[in-house]
Each structure stands twice: as structure tokens, then as C-alpha cells.
């Protein structure tokens, strides 16, 4: 089993409360997990002989921590990024998106994956692109549902019911947004809009209004 130690700096969105993954950490563990939002620049000098180094990601790319090219200065092949799925104010879920760069070694990736899976989490691997998998797919869809709701395509209830009954979704998009926070959706989709410059990521009116009214 992959052993690891945890260094925390700032608040962690992925693990706001304790979890098997946190409890299984061990001060003398070989791997290094950097938890929290304040690891602005990862210092490769601190990696020591860790077989893998996993840094928690917000909406930023792993490249912000790991540099743009492979090489001794920044592009360490042991570095991976991770983010546990969590929408707005909801509890985090089961999924961990594990981000690699082109020079990430398969050994480091496997060791990081094993550490998360040992704690009962499900890992999906992706490359270092803005929004990873979930936000990249979910945000344009959520924006579209909010826009079409404004345009009176259907009532919110019918829109949700249609997507749930037609596609077997456990929750409709409007209920999901109301549960997890429209202003929080604004923050993520605005960051992606800036990163990608694509109109479907532009926050929908309702998200913009919610953000303005939240005072944030």
C-alpha cells in the first residue's frame, strides 16, 4: 500500500473534514500530499525521495505548480495534481480527478492513484487542461439550462423532470444548482470562461445575479 505524509497549507476544498484518506496518512510516509489552497508554488527541493507528490488543485492547472516543461528545475515526473469532486457548498463526493503532465511517470501516477483508491475513492485520470473533466463538461450544460430557463423553454420543474426521466439523471440541473449554489457556479464557470475564452462558459444571467447579490 502507498504510504504518504500530508502537508497542509490553507483550506482544503477536497477534504474539508477528516476522511479515511487523511487518517491513513503517516508522518514518515514516502509519498507527499500537499493539501490546501495555499501551495502557490511547489518547491521541488522539498520532494526529497518521495515516489509521488500530489498537490491539491483548485481551478488552476497543474502547470502552475509543476512548470511548463520537463526538466530538473520544475518539471518533476513525480508531480501529480488532484481535486475531489465537490459542487459549490455541497459535501465532496466519491470522485478524485487525478491530473498528470506529459512527463509525469507512470510509477508516480500509479502510486498516487493507489493512495486515493485505498481510501475508498474513485480515481479518474486526466491531462492538465482547464476544468479537467467534470467542470469542463458540466459548466456549459448548466449555463445552457439557466439560459433556456430564462427564455421559458419550459418551467424549472419540467426541465428537471425531462432530463431525469429521459436520461435517468438522479437530479435535474436546476435543482442541482439551487442545492449547491448559483454564486458558486458563477465562480467556477467565470474562471473557465477566462481560461478558455469560449462563450458557453460565460456565466448565465441567473448565476451573475446570484453572485452580485451574494456580495462576493
Amino acid at each position: 500500500m502507498a504510504s504518504y505524509r500530508i502537508v497542509t497549507s490553507g483550506k482544503s476544498r477536497s477534504f474539508p473534514t477528516s476522511h479515511e484518506f487523511i487518517e491513513a496518512a503517516d508522518e514518515s510516509g514516502a509519498g507527499l500530499v500537499m493539501l490546501g489552497s495555499d501551495h502557490a508554488l511547489v518547491d521541488g527541493g522539498a520532494f526529497g525521495d518521495a515516489p509521488f507528490v500530489a498537490v491539491e488543485l483548485g481551478s488552476e492547472c497543474l502547470g502552475v505548480h509543476g512548470g511548463l516543461a520537463s526538466g530538473p528545475a520544475n518539471g518533476d515526473g513525480r508531480l501529480v495534481g488532484f481535486a475531489r469532486f465537490r459542487l459549490g457548498t455541497a459535501e465532496p463526493g466519491q470522485l478524485v480527478e487525478l491530473v498528470r503532465q506529459p512527463w509525469t511517470t507512470p510509477e508516480a501516477l500509479d502510486a498516487a492513484r493507489a493512495a486515493f483508491e485505498a481510501a475508498g475513492l474513485t480515481v479518474a485520470v486526466c491531462e492538465d487542461f482547464p476544468g479537467r473533466i467534470i467542470d469542463r463538461l458540466l459548466r456549459p450544460y448548466l449555463n445552457a439550462t439557466l439560459r433556456r430557463l430564462d427564455e421559458k423553454l419550459a418551467t424549472a420543474e419540467d426541465l428537471d423532470r425531462t432530463l431525469c426521466m429521459g436520461l435517468g439523471y438522479p437530479e435535474g440541473p436546476i435543482a442541482l444548482l439551487n442545492r449547491t449554489g448559483l454564486a458558486e457556479h458563477f465562480d467556477v464557470t467565470q474562471a473557465l470562461y477566462e481560461a478558455l475564452g469560449q462563450e458557453p462558459y460565460a456565466p448565465a444571467r441567473a448565476a451573475r445575479v446570484a453572485k452580485a447579490r451574494s456580495g462576493g
Binding site: 469532486f85 463526493g93 466519491q94 470522485l95 480527478e97 474513485t122 479518474a124 485520470v125 486526466c126 491531462e127 487542461f129 479537467r132 473533466i133 467534470i134 469542463r136 463538461l137 458540466l138 436520461l167 435517468g168 439523471y169 438522479p170 437530479e171
Partner: peptide, 25 residues
């Protein structure tokens, strides 16, 4: 397009969506 752009493998994308959002497929 995520597959096209090399963001992730199809199996990883499907796994992520099903796990995170509870979609049946």
C-alpha cells in the same frame, strides 16, 4: 471534444461523470 483534445481517455471520462453526477451511463 475532450477525447479529441486528449484531455482524458473515454473510460476515464465516463467513470468521472458516473461517479460524480450519478448518471446511469
Amino acid at each position: 471534444r475532450l477525447v479529441e483534445q486528449g484531455v482524458a481517455e473515454p473510460a476515464e471520462i465516463d467513470k468521472a461523470i458516473k461517479t460524480a453526477l450519478g448518471y446511469p451511463m
